[in-house]
């Protein structure tokens, strides 16, 4: 009976989740512009995609910001986690509260508050401000990924290294970092994907002149999205899928 329910219910839910994605990918191979009518298979949109300077620029902005923001956030967050882990109870709980603020705040408030900061300080919005914003919302996720690994560590490991003659910097590089490396990778990947997908915060912290894919899609949504966008997101979707498979293969290989 339970099997029977599961056999029907789960496919239905998955259908609901995947229907728009299937539609989107199918549309990207449609020869016509129409969203509803199939006019034959074609790679037309994929060709147009690479010919569109606007989309290519947005792709460049999206990817470069995702890479840079995840690098900065990973450095900042890893160091912060190490610091927080060595603090007393009161100080560390205060720091964790500070870390929780951007995660509990709605994206729109985060975006608007940063926009106000940039306007108030007369920093014109663009690539740089978007990068700052992305580092800001990514860092807490890095901390949350690294923290559990630090908690798992023997608390005397660091002291043991100093005891054996290591300077604090040597102990950090050769003892702490290797032990928490899985957490750092998780954090970096997480911030990369978050950054790739972000719309709301980017929308408020950039100018119409510097657009990432999300803000470009948004500004085009009113005019009607061209299937080139579908082609691009289908490509990115596949790329992320491959990335996940590679990472999974690697981590499962590590476990053996």
């Amino acid at each position: 009976m339970k099997k029977w329910v599961r056999g029907i219910y789960l496919p239905l839910i998955l259908l609901f989740l995947y229907l728009p994605i299937v539609v989107l990918i199918v549309q990207s191979f449609n020869a016509g512009v129409s969203r509803a009518r199939w006019e034959g298979f074609s790679l037309r949109w994929y060709k147009e995609l690479f010919a569109s300077p606007q989309i290519m620029r947005a792709l460049y902005v999206t990817l470069s910001i995702a890479v840079l923001a995840s690098i900065f956030a990973t450095i900042l967050g890893t160091l912060a986690a190490i610091g927080i882990n060595s603090m007393g109870k009161k100080a560390s709980s205060a720091m964790l509260t500070l870390t929780n603020i951007p995660m509990t705040m709605p994206d729109i408030v985060t975006g608007i508050s940063l926009m106000l900061l940039f306007i108030f300080t007369k920093v014109s919005r663009g690539y740089f401000t978007m990068l700052l914003a992305h580092v800001t919302f990514n860092t807490p996720y890095v901390i949350l990924s690294v923290m559990p690994k630090l908690r798992e560590m023997n608390k005397y490991s660091y002291e043991a290294a100093l005891d054996l003659g290591a300077t604090p910097s040597y102990a950090l590089r050769h003892v702490i970092l290797p032990s928490i490396f899985p957490g750092i990778t998780t954090g970096a990947l997480l911030s990369f994907t978050l950054s790739l997908d972000d719309f709301t915060i980017s929308y408020f912290t950039t100018s119409p002149l510097v657009q990432n894919l999300s803000t470009l899609i948004y500004s085009e949504a009113r005019k009607g999205i061209k299937p080139t966008m579908n082609a691009l997101s289908a490509l990115m979707f596949v790329a992320l899928l491959i990335l996940l498979l590679v990472v999974n293969r690697r981590t499962s290989a590590d476990h053996k």
Binding site: P20, L24, I217, I225
Partner: peptide
Amino acid sequence: WMNFLLRTIAWMSL
């Protein structure tokens, strides 16, 4: 992982 704006727009086609 698919852009949330595009996924929402895809519902329009449906």
